[in-house]
Amino acid sequence: MKILVPVKRVVDYNVKIRVKPDGSGVELANVKMSMNPFDEISVEEALRLKEAGKAEEVVVVSIGPAKAEETLRTALAMGADRAILVETDDTVEPLAVAKILKGVVEAENPGLVIVGKQAIDDDANQTGQMLAALLGWAQGTFASKVEIGADKATVTREVDGGLQTIDIKLPAVVTTDLRLNEPRYASLPNIMKAKKKPLDKKTPADFNVSTAARLKVLKTEEPEGRKAGVKVKSVAELVEKLKTEAGVL
């Protein structure tokens, strides 16, 4: 089985995000970029399945600017076998991403797509679900455990009330949650090999997908700063404030 893992280049999770003065978005100039952490978890899971003999090949794909090649090389250095860069400087919305990925899936025929549940930049949490719908495949979202059987996968999902375990038919789309695994570091030999691994370049047009925007960003603003708290003298006062001021009781 082949596993396809989409990875996205996003602002590093350690970076303190700043909104552009004109409110058109967040500042990306001179900001450290890294692989979306959920995608790292996806790459790790795919590599573990390969190491466990459940898969033969791990292919990573990224949709984004030429610089996204670095993100793909990072995935190759972790141990992925080859990479595909679908190059575009446009902001690609989740639906267009899903459509492009559908095209990649049709070309590659993977048995499983493992994708991060969301990217930490737009937090859309849509791509995996849309891709499964477009393909007509089963989906197991927010996975904290994945087991591959003969023609099905057993996925433990992190849902609001706890854990839900489902069986899904393969081929399928799995989206990964934080507790699925701890991604590995790139090993030195794999870093050295990464550059020699194949990396194909495509464009959205190769998959007949338009990346024209369907969504309009009206405004980007900083979240409100945390306000100072108040001290109450008694429980009675606390209950009173919760009722009248906070309105939670």
Binding site: R73, T74, A77, Y185, A186, L188, I191, M192, A194, K195
Partner: peptide, 14 residues
């Protein structure tokens, strides 16, 4: 080089 960048980031991360 790309390799050196990755080595730096891996060791930093480690």
């Amino acid at each position: 080089t790309e390799e050196q960048e990755m080595i730096v980031s891996t060791v930093r991360n480690f």
